[in-house]
Design a protein around this nucleic acid. Structure first.
Lengths: 230, 230
DNA sequence: TGATCTAATTTTGAATTCAAAATTATGTCA
DNA sequence: TGACATAATTTTGAATTCAAAATTAGATCA
């Protein structure tokens, strides 16, 4: 007899949800230019849908802060401002700290080993200075810890804020010094996770986020200055 | 000349946003019965709008977890489960702790005095055993601290999770003992806020939330048992 | 009676339509 | 020319329409 396995029920996703999932990457990748108008008509054509489900998706994305709706003027891709970064990173820090604490309580050996492997891969990317790969693996590590925390609400909240920050293409930043420091922080993250030292892991994740915040703000400031010379 | 005062721009709210704002209270007040179907047609009539903006609002409410969309079967008012409470309260705790820490850094004397007054009012409600009033003021205090933290992202995140928890009509709960303890916790909250002791305020808010979690879970368990006697 | 199948009705999801607002283009006149 | 007004066009917001899916009602038969 077939087990009632936790395999996800075949939920035929609704069109608007599908669109939310498709639009998010377009926004965080920058394919939809930050600050520009969301090309409603074009997107309808591109995805072969009418305006109704697309506009439903835009409302949801707006509530996530990825776009901004101006009444009677349409939807605009939001851009990452310094003040937004100053706001979001502390919140993300608190949430990631919590995720670390919870993860230490329920992470399995297999999951720890998975993080260990990811960590090794990330170091490799660091050594070959492959920034794209580094960031991709980095994200996977944070996500693995998040999932080990076994708290869907936490996962969702973190994910949403994280998405907003990913719009900042701060990947480009990463000075050699900051990169080295980040790797050191990750060594500690791995260590405390293996030790299941929730307290220290939380603290490290918090500090890690704070460093990231500083780094991102610096980059954004550098971006702004040239265009405001007076 | 007219100053560019920070008076809110006369933003004609969009219909769907208006509906989100109107539906939220219906859900948290229980006027829309938890677990029941969202009466789309009825709501259209009630608010005098067509299905389009209403359905847009439903998508947003669903992304906030207040309702659940079942493809081809409509929208359902979600009910507060124990496992959801176990998830949300720790996250809320972390966020409120952060709000306390940040508030201590930037709260003004006026704002502290406002909280002081609210606290006094709340004590009065406690002494007259006016639960509704107690909860209303209680919320105002937490919100005042949140606003003093000067972090809109934090405010929004907290608010969203808080709304989800408010669906639980745990107000009814509040044993005499728990109520007394909660008041004591609030005495400390006020004290640490006046002292601007961010660290201790954060810790107290966290503990406060944890106590609330226990209390709510107990109540929910009591609710469930009678209907599942076997 | 009650289980099962089929037809009628309702509800849902999404495309289309339409009026109002905003934008762009065109014309006027100093 | 260029500042302003007016007309044409486009875009937006929301109501309506329509096909597909789900639900309900009714019929059939053991």
């Amino acid at each position: 007899m077939m087990q009632n396995a936790p395999a996800q029920a075949i939920t035929r996703k609704s069109l608007h949800q599908e669109l939310v999932d498709r639009l998010q990457p377009l926004i965080i990748s920058g394919e939809l230019t930050p600050g520009s108008k969301v090309p409603e008509k074009l997107l309808c054509t591109r995805f072969g849908v009418s305006r109704t489900p697309l506009r439903e998706a835009l409302k949801v994305l707006a509530s996530d802060g990825l776009i901004r709706l101006e009444p009677n003027r349409g939807a605009w891709v939001t851009l990452v401002t310094i003040s937004e970064v100053e706001e979001v990173f502390p919140v993300l820090g608190a949430l990631e700290a919590l995720s670390g604490e919870l993860a230490c309580k329920s992470i399995t050996t297999d999951e720890i080993n998975a993080v260990r492997r990811l960590h090794a891969q990330m170091i490799e990317s660091y050594e070959t200075r492959d920034l794209d790969s580094y960031f991709a693996i980095n994200q996977k590590i944070h996500r693995a810890i998040l999932l080990a925390a076994r708290n869907d609400t936490l996962t969702t909240s973190c994910q949403a804020l994280s998405l907003r920050m990913q719009r900042a293409r701060y990947l480009a930043n990463m000075t050699e010094g900051r990169w080295y420091a980040a790797v050191q922080e990750h060594e500690n993250i791995l260590k405390f996770l293996i030790d299941k030292d929730g307290r220290r892991l939380a603290r490290t994740l918090l500090d890690h986020m704070e460093s990231k915040r500083v780094s991102v703000v610096q980059w954004l400031e550098a971006q702004n200055e040239p265009s405001e010379p007076m």
